[in-house]
């Protein structure tokens, strides 16, 4: 038990002793704040958005944190693949020869790092929506429903950090893993969603599951899973990638 805690703390020491985490946190905060400001600026029927102060607009704001999911995803990928990129896999696996333990420690450590990202992004989103919203007429009026969406939106960031570690374990090449997953999320999935014959499968894919978590972005008549199904499915993707990665890639020779 103690050894497990030590390993998770070692991962945090790694995370906090380079600048990657701070930069990604900054980018996530800027993206969250920027999207919120953009939505607030454009709120109103003439732009196809609900007016500020309406429950519908609050729902839109609550979905903003989930839009920066790529940031914790990239954070998790870098967290795992840096071991190979900078060849620190050698000292890491010398200290912990049972490599599965390293992967588990990273999953836990990056889930917590994902909580930190989520907290910052949610805080910035709410702050911008309140400040700028008031200036434009009304601050969001948070209800149990919209707070629930906001919470799941933040939770999506935690799950994507876990997915990042899993993807990184499977694809040891850092550039390959980052580019591959971005291309997948932004190109492959939107194509799948746009073809009627395959659109039905979209809800079971990571993008569809993410949309289900916040109840947004489904549009186009695609049935999404429920929020909790979507969240569990996403977590499942992350864990399956981590298990496959541990068995197929992480155990391979470190030369």
């Amino acid at each position: 038990m103690n050894a497990a805690v030590d390993l998770v703390r070692a991962e945090w020491t790694k995370l906090l002793s380079t600048k990657v985490f701070f930069w990604l946190l900054l980018v996530a905060a800027l993206m969250g704040g920027g999207f919120t400001a953009l939505f607030t600026a454009l709120a109103g029927a003439q732009n196809g958005l609900p007016p500020v102060g309406s429950p519908e607009f609050t729902e839109v704001v609550a979905g903003v944190p989930a839009q920066v999911a790529v940031i914790p995803l990239v954070l998790g990928i870098i967290g795992m693949t840096q071991e190979y990129r900078h060849r620190t896999a050698t000292p890491t696996f010398l200290v912990t020869p049972r490599r599965g333990r390293v992967v588990v420690a990273k999953l836990l450590a990056y889930a917590v790092a994902g909580v930190a990202v989520a907290a910052v992004v949610v805080a910035v989103t709410v702050a911008v929506a309140s400040g700028y919203g008031s200036a434009r007429g009304a601050a969001p009026d948070w209800t149990a429903d919209t707070l629930g969406t906001l919470g799941r939106s933040g939770l999506a960031l935690v799950v994507f950090a876990v997915i990042g570690v899993g993807v990184g374990a499977l694809v040891r090449n850092q550039v390959g893993a980052v580019v591959g997953s971005l291309v997948y999320l932004f190109v492959v999935e939107s194509i799948i969603a746009s073809i009627p014959a395959t659109a039905d499968a979209y809800r079971f894919l990571p993008g569809g599951a993410l949309a289900a978590m916040t109840g947004t972005g489904g549009g186009g008549g695609i049935d999404l899973l429920t929020a909790w199904q979507g969240g569990l499915l996403l977590l499942g993707y992350g864990l399956v990638a981590a298990v496959l990665g541990t068995v197929l890639a992480v155990r391979r020779d470190v030369v």
């Binding site: 070692a10 790694k14 002793s17 380079t18 600048k19 990657v20 900078h86 060849r87 050698t90 000292p91």
Partner: peptide, 14 residues
Amino acid sequence: AFHPGRSGRDHLRV
């Protein structure tokens, strides 16, 4: 083998 952006001391602390 070490991360180029990490100090020697932090590397050891990890």
